[in-house]
């Protein structure tokens, strides 16, 4: 478990350093995630590995970690009330547009490639 945590923290550290050195407009932790993904693929990491167990544990409680940030809404209640319309329409409108975009685009592309790809991946395995 501790070894797994070391892996996660090390990947994040490298990501944060890379982002600062290159001034890339990406969060360091996301670079760390890409790095960990490469490591996991490279080493064909099995589910029993410490990094997977530590990571699964953290992901199982992901919602806990952003409670403190969410409480920050208290400091902005006034601003939210003043801009209720743009906030609500912006949130719901872009959500609806994006879910339709992804759903329709993927459906159309799968259908178009249907002939070449054969059965769905689940059926092969």
């Amino acid at each position: 478990m501790l070894v797994g945590l070391i892996w996660l923290l090390a990947c994040q550290l490298v990501g944060e350093v890379v982002v600062r050195l290159t001034d890339a407009p990406i969060p360091g932790a996301v670079v760390g995630m890409v790095l960990l993904f490469v490591v996991l693929r490279w080493r064909r990491t099995p589910d029993s590995a410490p990094v997977i167990r530590a990571g699964d544990y953290l992901l199982g409680h992901l919602q806990l970690f952003f409670v403190p940030a969410g409480v920050g809404v208290l400091a902005y209640l006034g601003a939210l009330r003043a801009h209720a319309l743009p906030v609500l329409v912006g949130m719901l409108g872009s959500w609806l547009l994006a879910i339709a975009t992804v759903g329709w685009a993927v459906t159309a592309l799968i259908r178009r490639r249907g002939g070449e790809t054969g059965p769905a991946p689940e059926e092969i395995e």
Binding site: C11, Q12, G28, M33, L40, E122, E125
Partner: peptide
């Protein structure tokens, strides 16, 4: 939040085999 974000690589790693085609 930081290490948990890094850990999001794990579900990606697990699902890669579904991507064929």
């Amino acid at each position: 939040l930081g290490p948990a974000t890094v850990a999001l690589a794990i579900p990606l790693h697990r699902q890669t085999h579904r991507l064929r085609g």
